[in-house]
Design a protein around this nucleic acid. Structure first.
Lengths: 208, 208
DNA sequence: ATGAGTATCCGTATTTATACGGATGCCCAT
DNA sequence: ATGGGCATCCGTATAAATACGGATACTCAT
């Protein structure tokens, strides 16, 4: 019997999920919580589930924070993220944070069951579409991805708003050469040829 | 009694919605369909509902196509779009296509009921968040928004990939001046100062 | 004490973008 | 026949970006 907790701030969703999952003989819903804090409390206090179905966008303590706090703590519990976000960056972030699976909220029933069973048996579950999104995101990041510094981010923000190097220098009270250097460094970090590609890529990477 | 049809390709969602809506004494689910075509057939054949809860991303005939086909046809039926997409462009497109309301799939129960009642009584229903997203999109479009021509879009694509005017001229077998003119015209249409802002705005407007 | 990273700034040069106009020809709707 | 929109191309000029290096000083971890 696979013990499952559902963590999502919408009762409708939890109820629907509970009804669906309970229809299968090998699944048992042992908890249904509406906040990250409730989930943490349940994990500390009660019988540990085999799997947590975890929404990302919960108030106060979101899914990412939950993953961060449980990291290395409840090792026997596996987390399948369920999210509306079909964005490679969210998915990559979840995978890095230790998620064992990722499903979109419009996943169909059979796939949900398959995911639950696969993750229960020790595998990770990411379907082809999810994999493709992750690959796209990693390809965007490139081989030697280094994050932008605070100043670079600031300059990038101004550039994306259409300001010239001269204008940015004036706003930040620095030399034109300083801004030029920051622009050049960003272009190197993101491996792009010019400003158009910089803005394009930075947008895709959610740096703007 | 408010008669309602639910149109969504995921049975779990339809079932959950049906259970929730049926819990209210003034609502009656008179149909539950999984495709746009089924919805069209139901509207042609059966008693018309007062309201259709319409998912956007259905296979073959999506929600936009449904709205387009019903435009001016079933005038007494009101459409509330239910979508995962919290994107001003989707929302604006729905409103332009005649939707009477727009809800995100993580809307809470009470708000769903409110929306159904308001739309039934002749109002439109868009909450503050949805309105804000629309406003942002309209602000982006600006005052005298004109769409890009095919050639402009083609040039824009190349520009966003980091190509210079010279390179684009070579690829398209036209003069450098031609590409220069296209770039200048796009910048005028989108009311931006330079290429960085062009790419930034075009991305937000989903032109790239 | 040392080294790496960050932020700052420089000289010189070339390439690219942008701006100010202007023009012709084709297609299509009126 | 006419006019508007689109795609094409031009001369001249300035502004901006990019590129090739180089440099100093501060902070923080080792």
């Amino acid at each position: 019997m696979i013990n499952i907790i559902i963590a999502d701030d919408h009762q409708l969703f939890r109820d629907g999920m509970k009804a669906l999952i309970s229809s299968q003989p090998d699944f048992l819903i042992i908890g249904s919580v509406g906040t990250g804090q409730e989930l943490m409390d349940a994990l500390e206090r009660d019988t540990l589930p085999d799997i947590v179905l975890l929404d990302l966008s919960m108030p106060v303590m979101d899914g990412f924070e939950v993953l961060r706090q449980v990291k290395g703590k409840f090792r026997s519990v596996r987390f399948i993220v369920i999210s509306m976000h079909e964005d490679g960056i969210y998915i990559s972030k979840c995978v890095r944070s230790g998620a064992h699976g990722y499903l979109l909220k419009n996943t169909d029933n059979e796939e949900l069951f398959t995911a639950l069973r696969r993750v229960y048996s020790g595998e990770k579950y990411f379907n082809d579409e999810i994999k493709e999104l992750m690959i796209q995101n990693l390809a965007l990041e490139g081989n030697d991805y280094r994050p932008l510094t605070d100043r670079e981010s600031e300059v990038l923000q101004h550039v994306s708003q259409g300001k010239t190097t001269k204008e940015i220098a004036s706003i930040l009270f620095v030399s034109i050469r300083t801004v030029e250097t920051h622009r050049a460094n960003m272009m190197k970090k993101l491996d792009v040829q010019n400003t158009a590609e910089l803005i394009s890529k930075a947008t895709q990477l959610r740096l703007i």
